[in-house]
């Protein structure tokens, strides 16, 4: 499974960025390979319009299957995500990445849609 996180930093010790579209980084954890990599999203988060859909597109391109985030995507991004095969877990805002991953594994996060 490929797990994605909206994140304020680049490693396991970073925190979940509660924002979806304007998240600074997207962290990708490949469970099979046990590999964590960071994708800089600041170019997108600085755009004037439609950052939600653009971030969603990026998440799609990165092959994310499960996304852990904070507030949940706004209307436009949600529209894009509906068309993607990704399960979204919300309300992890402020948690560390490791903590959020643990919470997801323990079924303690709220899921929406998908």
């Amino acid at each position: 499974m490929i797990v994605g996180f909206t994140s304020t930093g680049e490693g396991w010790d970073a925190k979940i960025d509660p924002r979806f579209g304007r998240t600074e980084f997207i962290l990708i954890y490949d469970e099979e390979k046990d590999e964590l990599k960071a994708v800089d999203n600041r170019e997108v988060s600085d755009m004037a319009h439609g950052v939600g859909p653009k971030t969603a597109q990026k998440i799609h391109e990165l092959g994310v299957q499960v996304l852990i985030t904070g507030n949940g995507p706004g209307g436009n991004a949600a529209e894009v995500l509906k068309n993607m095969n990704v399960k979204i877990y919300i309300k992890a805002g402020g948690m560390g990445i490791r903590e959020a991953y643990g919470a997801y594994k323990a079924n303690k996060l709220e899921s929406i849609g998908g």
């Binding site: 004037a48 439609g50 859909p53 969603a56 993607m84």
Partner: peptide
């Protein structure tokens, strides 16, 4: 310019 089109 508005990111109103997205390619998935």
């Amino acid at each position: 310019a508005y990111n109103a089109l997205i390619k998935l």
